[in-house]
Design a protein around this nucleic acid. Sequence first.
DNA 1: GCATGTTTTGCACGTTCATGCAAGAAGCCG
DNA 2: CGGCTTCTTGCATGAACGTGCAAAACATGC
Lengths: 252, 252
Amino acid sequence: MLTDQRHQLIRDRLAAEGSVLAGELASHFGVSEDTVRRDLRELAKAGLCRRVYGGAVASAPFATVPVGQRASHAAEEKTRLARATVALLARGQTLFIDSGTTNAAIARAIPRDLDLTVATNSLEIASVLSDHALIELIVLGGRFDRHLGACVGADTLAAVAQLGADLFILGSCGLDVSRGVTAFVSAEAEVKRAMARNSAGIVIAVTSDKLATAAPYRVAGAETIRHLVVEKTAPPAILADFERQGAEIHLA
Amino acid sequence: MLTDQRHQLIRDRLAAEGSVLAGELASHFGVSEDTVRRDLRELAKAGLCRRVYGGAVASAPFATVPVGQRASHAAEEKTRLARATVALLARGQTLFIDSGTTNAAIARAIPRDLDLTVATNSLEIASVLSDHALIELIVLGGRFDRHLGACVGADTLAAVAQLGADLFILGSCGLDVSRGVTAFVSAEAEVKRAMARNSAGIVIAVTSDKLATAAPYRVAGAETIRHLVVEKTAPPAILADFERQGAEIHLA
DNA sequence: GCATGTTTTGCACGTTCATGCAAGAAGCCG
DNA sequence: CGGCTTCTTGCATGAACGTGCAAAACATGC
């Protein structure tokens, strides 16, 4: 059994039942409790669950996320990226915005006096934009995935198919010149692909840790990226590669 | 049973019933009363309840109520209605819940250990239920109406049409025996009608001020109501009329 | 092919934590 | 006041915890 597989199964269990017991997982996987504790510690560190005595509970999504290890330490960078990304938007445009913490930061950075049409499958982003009076908000419904904090599945794909956007603000899990934009979950990748297909341009804002990494599911090729927003500290060599593929680089 | 889970369930119980008894909780969870007292002490310290002799009571019901200008003055009544409505639910059921402050209160009163499938077009209700691990949540997307805080329109209708529910928790704008259930906005009424059509039973929880009033758009006849949850102070004559139409009356 | 480094896992250690029990203090009711 | 319940505090116990370490599995480089 691969460590990563075990992690995934624990995440599934958390999503399905809301909580897990260390001892129960240990006997279920046939490993020691120490190993399970290590797993839980790592998942908690990644913000995927909350560690409690005896096991772990699913971390509440955005509602009560003053915690969130990775949300806080990278919050400042994400805010900077968000501001730079919002600067690319023009009034009257139609956008797709999918889920992800960076995209949530972008939604939060959208000024209230910018009139846009926004279609999103992320509940958090929809909530953020719900009181922007000038934004025409389209919620892309479907089965809600707690991992992603967004809707996925056939209903979501059907909703996306009926729309077209000027820009797609794509929350990327991994970004590599040769492998392009990639995602961790199949259902997530499907929605991203549909949004990409129905958009005139793709905008990606990523923190440096996502650069030159790849996740299993392919979403779009590097040549489809129109705007790439990255931190100032990003390796110039990598950025040059993307630039050769036609992307416009924006440093935040 | 994880300590954290117990705390969570006590909080749900507090939200649903308004008060808890130490001894009752102890036998319910199978722990000593000392443990329960410790739990209650911690919850009280965190400001999540107020400790009283023999148990604890929910601290200000406003604590968890976020927005909504008129939500405050009738909050307590709505919470009572919500508790009584949740008591009608059974595990494994599929529900439609549409928008409205009363329905939002009902969603908040749903305990975390109740597994349900819930389809809603209200963004607030979706957010509330998004961290209930046992609830299969289906977001009914479409054009977001800021006035309603929910999605309406053709896309929403199409999403509803694909589903069927055991119960429809209908947020009523006006309720009158002869005119039935009515709504203020055409688009809202359309969604309610679609949900009513695809549900085996209709549940309505209303404050007294909605009784014997009517809004322009007709949603469903009085004879289609299966459960009617009202305040104790509701005029018996009106309730008798609904009872004659086949509704089961629940006083909160 | 062998040595080296890395990762994963299990075990032993001392520590922390949740729980229940006992004893005394405090609150409630007649 | 007296009898009762409920509460708090201190303490003991066992379970869960983190850490350091070593063995094993695996990859990497010469």
